[in-house]
Each structure stands twice: as structure tokens, then as C-alpha cells.
Design a protein around this nucleic acid. Structure first.
Lengths: 315, 315
DNA sequence: CAGAAATAAAAACAAATGTTTCATTATGAG
DNA sequence: CTCATAATGAAACATTTGTTTTTATTTCTG
């Protein structure tokens, strides 16, 4: 329950009023937050030159129920998940349960349903935040840049996403076409599945999106594309996913969800990020092409009025 | 002794030769390195859907003395990693500029590009997290539940999303059809735009997704649908968006992005959440229908093998 | 200095952890 | 089918864990 910052703050505030040994323990905790998260209490005590009891007392004096609880906060800090956002989800949950208790329960079942649904929503948010954070970790950071390099050098770019993964593929294709015209969205519409890949070769790149369960369609395409010696970039959920096995670069996205369905939120976010990076690399040229595309759209009166505020175009 | 990368490499290399259970364990370790570092072996085993024994066997098969030893590697990885991602990005940046100064600068521009891109990615993540958190606020929580009530009572459900909003609409349609068959995805394929809305009436619901700039297509559909006295649920970016003006319920999603393109991440997440709520309301019936759909898919051999671990079906 | 109060270390304890062992279940070759 | 072998989960094991209790030590007031 208590976040890392809470513990830290309490430690600092109470520090002056502490006994020497407590101070020593507190000081070590403040100076070595990683150890708190990773080591055991006994190990930490030894490292701090203190007995385990002192740590327990320390928790008592700063008003935290137990050491374990405190450590959870420290562990979350190390996790890829920003604690501040997680707090929001938890807050949602609390509020609903609080309301549930205080209300005169005219209709238990209804209130219960509402409250469990709120919990569900909070849980979804929580997972999605985690998915995002994990999917934008440092490894991904470099992987995405490498992927963009490949895409940037490609003769033609093919994007593949079947079934649930289609939105992510479409998203990329739609945005990408604003500034380049060498992209094919492999959607296999009207059974033209193989046709779209025709003429693919060594200098082409396939960007394949697919989470478990992997559709056979995608794997077939992958086999074919590999046989043509084209480069493959996979966006999938594991290093050992069938999509990732033969890919030059694997962009791993998290898809945790409390629902029966995997979440494609992170996949979409990563695809969007790829576009953003590509645009930023494209420089002035890309921006000009985007401007041209927008002019064309407005000629077709695609968009509503002009009331829509212009978006910022960065880099 | 063994570093994180060693373990990871061994896990991937040996993966194919593993038994199903070992694969499941290996896969979870690969996909959730943080858990390995922070959780206990038993907890990790449970999370991976495996018995503790399997983990210790896994270590044996990949040639690592003990689980404890392996975990040390994972813990060290976490230590080397700066706490918060934004901090992480910043440090990355610093490191690269530091290197840039110390190194014989063969290629200034390249290193600089890397670092600004890292900043861009960090910025994207930051914004996306904010988008999600804002889009799952308390107001949205009740709004989503109300929306689901309308959808649940609808005779037919129509989903609309043009251009950039199409992925979100598709996502919902795809998942929704797993447990109900009264949905039409209004995609206007091959110019059949109006046709799909034919026969729409008072008891029908339109779920319309659209962020600024709003496509005229969508607004046309909206006008028509309103004229038929159907109910409208909008997923858009503002309470005063043209989509929201005449909607019974407006689900407001944030779409901030450092790129030239709005972000549809939160929109997708909200659509997925709607599905999750609907399933949770559908209860046993919905689950049965999902099971039936999955059986049908496996009859068509849509998915790869059976090696994909079964997903948990909650609620 | 005496002695109460605060502080620290040591010991004790139940709960958990990592690991091993063993019985049971699948799998495949002959 | 039969048997040998691999794979798997349940139980047992000794350790280690977080915490509590007890005992010893220090500190400081009167």
C-alpha cells in the first residue's frame, strides 16, 4: 500500500527523532533503495550493520505496518511501472468499495455488480499501464530504433496483422502512408493474400504483428517472406513466439489483460511510436509530404470544417 | 555468476528442445524478467501456471546450478536500471552524450540522433501513460458501464470508425463477435457505406469512434442514425466534439502525442475495456459462446499448433 | 549513585522459501 | 498391447524468512 515515496518521506521526516541505531538503518535504506527491494530483511540488516529487529522497529516508528509492506513499495519502484499511475487504478478501486460499504444497500446485487465492474476497470487500467511501460523498456528503445533503420532503408515495406492484430497493422499503414508510398498492407482482402506479397525480395521488409494465439495465416506469410530472403521485423509477445524466431528484430509487446482477450493496446502504441520515429528521421521531407497529404484530404473535404484545431507537428 | 543475458540466451536456445511445461515456464521467465527478480520462486511458478519443481528442472536443463543463482542475474539487471523510465531515458541520453564527448567522434550526428530519439520515445511513453490514465478516470468508469448497459439492451449494435479511428472500431467488432452476433462493423467497404445502416431503428445502438480531425463520413453516418432515432454512443476526444454533441453517452479518450498524428492507444484500450465489461455481464452464457467460437476456429485450424498456453478466462 | 526508561541484541517462532524425493501420469518404440 | 522412458505434480525436507518475545545494555534523571 505505501508507495516508495511515502516510505522515503517518512524516513526523512522522522530521522532526527530516531535513536542512533534506527538512524543507521534509516540511512542505509535511504541510500540503497535497490537493496531494500531485492535483498531479504536479514541481508539488508547485515549490510546496514544492524540487527533485523532494528528494521522492524524502524517500520513501527515511521508508522508502517510491516517491513514486507514497505518493501513492496520499493519493489514497485524497480518494476517498469510508474507507481504514480498505478496509484490511480488503486484509487478507483478504493473509492468504489468505500461507496459500496457506506451506502444503504437497497439492492445488494446491483451495487455489487457496479463495484466488481469498477474493480475490473481498475484492473484493466492497471494492466494496460503495465503493458505500456513494459513495452517501452530500454531494450525496446534500441530495438525500435533498429527497426526503423531497416524500414527506412527498405525498398518496399509490407505490414501484416491478422485477426486481432489487424488494427495495429492498419494503424501503422494508415499513418505511414502520410509520408511515404512504398507500403503494402497485407490484409488478404477478397482472398488476394499471396498476390500482395508478389515480387517481394531481399531489399524488402515485412513488419509482422501477431500475439498468441498466432494465426496460421501469419506464419504462412512469414515462411514465404523468409524464403524470398526479405527482412522480417516482428511485433509479438515473446522472444520464443513463432513470429520472433526468424525475425531480424523482435519488438516485444506486453498484452496482459484480465479479459478473455489479449490486449493490443501496447502493440498499437508501439506501431504509432515507430511512425513517430520514422517521421522524425524523415525530417523536412517527411513533413512536406504530410502537408501535401493533408492538402489532398482537404481538397476531398474529408474532414469536418476547419474548426478542428491544428495539431502540433513536432520535429 | 550467470548474467541476465546468459540466462535469457540459454532459455531461448534450449526452448525448442523443452517439454511443454518447461516451455511454459521458460516463456514466462522470458516475458516477465522483473517478476523473476522480485518474486519468489513459488510465486513465479504460480504466475506462470507451473509447479515449483518445473522451475528447478528448467534451471537444470539450461545448465544453471540453481534458481537462486539465476535470479541473482535478473536482480543485477534491475539494479543497473534506473528507477523510473523517464529517469531512465534521461540517463540514456546523458550516457550517450557522455560517450559522445569521450569517444573519438567518428560520427557526431548519428549519436545525437540516437539520443534525441530516445527522448522522443520516452516522451511518447509518458504521453501514452497519461492518455490511458486520463481515459480511465472515475467519470469514464461510470460512463463505460452506462454504455455497456445500452449496448447490452440493443437489438443491433453498429460500430463506426473511419480512417485513423478504424482500428479501434475493428478491435471492438472483432472481440465482440466472439460472444454475440448482432454487430455490424460500418466500414463502408466497396462503397456500401449507407447500405450497412439500412433498417436501423430506435432500438439500435451506434458506437462511433472519432478523434479530431473528424471525418465527414462519420458525421454523415451520425446524422442519418440520429434521424432514425437510434441511440448513439460516442468515443471521441472532447465533450464538444461533433460526435459527442448528440450522443447519449460520450466516452472521452485522451489522444495526446508528440507526433503529427493523434494517438489511438487510449481509444483502443477503452474499446477493449467495453468488451471486457460486456463479457463480465454476459456471465456463463457469454463464456460458452466464446468457447464455441474458439472451437470453431480450431476446427478451421486458424491458430498455430496447441503449444500456445491456454489463456485464463476470468469472470 | 540508584534506578527507571529507553535502546539494542539474542533467542524463539511460525510462515515462507528453494530444493529433493517419490509416486503418478503421459508418451512412444518394439 | 507392453514395457521402458520421459514428464509431471504432490509431498517432504532443511533453510531462510519476517516478526515477536525475551534478555541485556545503555542512557539519563533525581
Amino acid at each position: 500500500m505505501p508507495a516508495y515515496d511515502d516510505c522515503r518521506e517518512k524516513l526523512i521526516d522522522t530521522y532526527d527523532a530516531m535513536s542512533p541505531q534506527l538512524q543507521r538503518a534509516a540511512r542505509y535504506m535511504l541510500d540503497h533503495p535497490d537493496d531494500v527491494a531485492l535483498k531479504s530483511m536479514r541481508a539488508l540488516a547485515t549490510a546496514a550493520g544492524v540487527t533485523p529487529s532494528t528494521l522492524v522497529r524502524l517500520m513501527k516508528t515511521i508508522g508502517i505496518a510491516s517491513y514486507q509492506e514497505c518493501r513492496l513499495g520499493y519493489q514497485n519502484r524497480l518494476r517498469d511501472m510508474p507507481a504514480s499511475y498505478t496509484g490511480r487504478a488503486r484509487q478507483l478501486q478504493h473509492r468504489s468499495t468505500a461507496r459500496h460499504i457506506s451506502d444503504e444497500d437497497k439492492d445488494d446485487s446491483k451495487i455489487d455488480a457496479r463495484s466488481t465492474e469498477t474493480t475490473l476497470i481498475a484492473e484493466i487500467l492497471h494492466q494496460e499501464l503495465g503493458n505500456l511501460a513494459r513495452s517501452f523498456g530500454p531494450e525496446m528503445c534500441t530495438a525500435m530504433q533498429d527497426a526503423c533503420k531497416l524500414i527506412g532503408n527498405a525498398r518496399r515495406v509490407f505490414v501484416l496483422g491478422r485477426r486481432g492484430a489487424f488494427p495495429a497493422a492498419f494503424q501503422f499503414a494508415y499513418a505511414y502512408r502520410f509520408f511515404a508510398d512504398n507500403l503494402t498492407l497485407v490484409d488478404g482482402a477478397a482472398g488476394t493474400f499471396g498476390d500482395q506479397l508478389r515480387g517481394m525480395g531481399r531489399r524488402d521488409v515485412l513488419l509482422a504483428v501477431g500475439l498468441s494465439p498466432y494465426s496460421n495465416d501469419s506464419l504462412q506469410v512469414l515462411d514465404y517472406v523468409l524464403a524470398q530472403n526479405a527482412t522480417v521485423i516482428s511485433v509479438t509477445d515473446s522472444d520464443v513466439s513463432p513470429l520472433a524466431r526468424h525475425a531480424s528484430i523482435n519488438l516485444m509487446v506486453a498484452d496482459a489483460s484480465p479479459s478473455f482477450f489479449q490486449s493490443f493496446t501496447a502493440a498499437v502504441a508501439v506501431m504509432q511510436a515507430l511512425v513517430a520515429i520514422l517521421v522524425s528521421r524523415g525530417g523536412e521531407t517527411a513533413l512536406q509530404q504530410i502537408a501535401r497529404a493533408e492538402k489532398q484530404l482537404s481538397a476531398f473535404e474529408t474532414y469536418w470544417r476547419d474548426a478542428s484545431p491544428k495539431r502540433n507537428i513536432k520535429s
